[in-house]
Simulated scan of single mutants.
Amino acid sequence: MSADGMPAALSPYVTTLAAYDLGPGSGGVHRGLPSSTLSITIPEADPVDIAWVGRPGPGRRLRAAVAGLHLDAAELRQRGCTRGLWLTLTPPGAAALLGVPASALAGEVAELADVVPALADLPERLAACRSWAQRRALVERRLLAGLARHGDRAARRTPRAALAALSGTGRVEEAARLLGCSRRHLSGAVRAELGVTPKEYQRLVRFEAARARLVAAARSGAAGLADVAAASGFADQAHLTREWRAMAGCTPTEWLRTEGPTPQPPSQPPR
C-alpha cells in the first residue's frame, strides 16, 4: 500500500482518485485544463455535458466520460447533482488498466462503456455505494482486475523511459540523446503510444507545472506570475500568458478568478 492508501500495484498508473463537488458557486460548470494524464469523470447521478472550448460543433452528454491527452480546454457541465468521482491515469495506465493505448483517446472524450466494456456497470455500482470508502474500494478492485488482464502486455510496449526523459528535459533532442536514440525514433514511439508528439507532451508537462505553481502561489501569496513563469521554463510572464490563452482559453488570472485554488482531494473538482 502506498503512502496515500493506493494499492502499490496501481501507484505507477493512477495519479488521482478523488470525489469532487462542483458546488453551487460554480453553477455546475468546470473548465477541464490540458493535461499529460488521461481522466475519467463519473458523475454521481446526472450525466455530464462536455464540450471543447474553441472547437466548433456540439458537445457530448456522457454517463461516464474518459478523456485522453489534450492540448485544448474542455467545459464540463453538470445539472442537478454536481458531485461525482474523478480519476486520472498516467499514459502507461491507459494500456495497463483499460487495455487501450493512450493514443486511441488523444484529443477526444468518449463514453467509458464504449472504451472499456468491462467497466460499463461501474457508474451504477458506484451509485449504489453508501460511502466514499466503498466507492474508492470498488474502483480500486476494478482497476486491479484490469491490470491483471492487460498489465503484462502493456509493460512490453509503453515507453516509460521516453516519458521520463521528455519530462526532465526542455528539448526533444536532449531527451533523445539521453535515451541513446534518434529524434525520429523517439517521435515515432511516443506518437504511437500517446497520440501526441514529444514536443506536445513536453508542452503539456510544462503547462501542468505552471498550473501547480500558480495554485501554490495563489494559496500562499508568496509569488507572482513572473516568478511562476520563470520557474516553469517560460521566457517571461507574457510567454506564460500567451500559452495559457492558447491552451486554456483564458489567462492565468482569469482562471484563478473563476475557479481559483480548490481544496485538495477528496473534494477537488476534475482537472
Rank of each mutant, 00 (worst) to 15 (best):
A64T: 03
L138W: 15
V66E: 06
A222Y: 05
G27K: 09
L119F: 10
G57C: 02
A192M: 10
A96K: 09
A145P: 13
P58A: 06
L138F: 08
A175V: 01
G59I: 01
H30D: 15
L62M: 13
A110G: 10
G54V: 07
E75F: 08
L62I: 12
L62C: 10
G59P: 08
A3M: 13
L240C: 12
S187N: 07
T82P: 00
L89Q: 10
R271T: 10
M1H: 10
L89G: 14
E173I: 08
G249H: 11
A226S: 11
A223C: 00
L38F: 04
R157P: 00
A104Q: 11
R184E: 05
P198F: 01
L256C: 01
D114R: 14
R184Q: 12
P269V: 03
R55V: 02
D152T: 12
L225Y: 03
P43K: 10
H239D: 09
A120R: 13
Q264I: 04
R242E: 05
A96Q: 15
V66T: 13
A175N: 02
R160C: 01
P270C: 10
A231H: 13
A222N: 05
R160W: 03
A67S: 09
C129P: 14
R61G: 03
A8D: 15
D4P: 00
P47V: 03
R60W: 01
A18L: 03
P198D: 01
A165E: 04
R136T: 08
